Amino acid sequence: MDTAFRPYRSVLYIPGSKERALDKARGLACDAIIFDLEDAVTPDAKGEARETLKAALAQDGYGERAKIIRINGLDTDWGADDVRVLKDAKAHAMLLPKVNSVADVEALDALMGETMDIWCMIETPLGVFNALEIAAHPRVKGFVAGTNDLAKELNCRNRADRLPMMFALQQMLLAARAYGVICVDGVYNQYLDEEGLAAECEQGRDLGFDGKTLIHPAQVEGANRAFAPSDAEVDLAKRQIAAHEEIEKTGQGVAVVDGKIVENLHVETAKKTLAKAEAIARMA
Rank of each mutant, 00 (worst) to 15 (best):
G251C: 05
D193M: 07
E245Q: 11
D193G: 12
A218C: 08
I241K: 03
G222F: 07
R239P: 04
H216P: 06
Q203P: 13
V220G: 10
Q252W: 13
Q240R: 13
A232D: 04
A242T: 15
G253D: 14
A223Q: 03
V184E: 03
C183G: 00
C183K: 00
N189P: 14
I241E: 11
Q252G: 09
A218M: 14
F227P: 04
G211N: 07
Q190K: 15
Y188F: 15
A228E: 06
N224P: 13
R205W: 11
A237E: 11
A198C: 03
V220Y: 01
D210T: 05
H216D: 12
A232F: 00
R239M: 07
G208N: 10
L197H: 01
G251E: 02
L236N: 09
Y191P: 12
E202S: 14
L214Y: 06
Q190S: 15
H216Q: 11
D235S: 08
A199V: 13
D231F: 10
D206Q: 11
D206W: 11
F209C: 08
R177F: 08
L207I: 08
G186D: 11
I215V: 04
G251D: 05
G211Y: 02
I182G: 02
R205H: 14
H244Y: 15
K212Q: 06
G180E: 02
Q240W: 00
V187N: 03
D185W: 06
V187A: 02
E202T: 15
Q203R: 15
Q252V: 14
L236Y: 06
R177Y: 03
P217N: 10
L197W: 02
V181I: 02
L236F: 10
V220T: 10
L197E: 05
Q219L: 08
G204Y: 05
T250Q: 10
F227M: 03
C183A: 11
A226R: 05
A175C: 07
E194C: 08
I182R: 14
K238W: 13
A226T: 07
E246N: 09
E248A: 12
L197P: 05
A198H: 03
V234K: 12
A198S: 02
Q203Y: 15
R225Q: 07
C201W: 01
A218Q: 10
A176P: 00
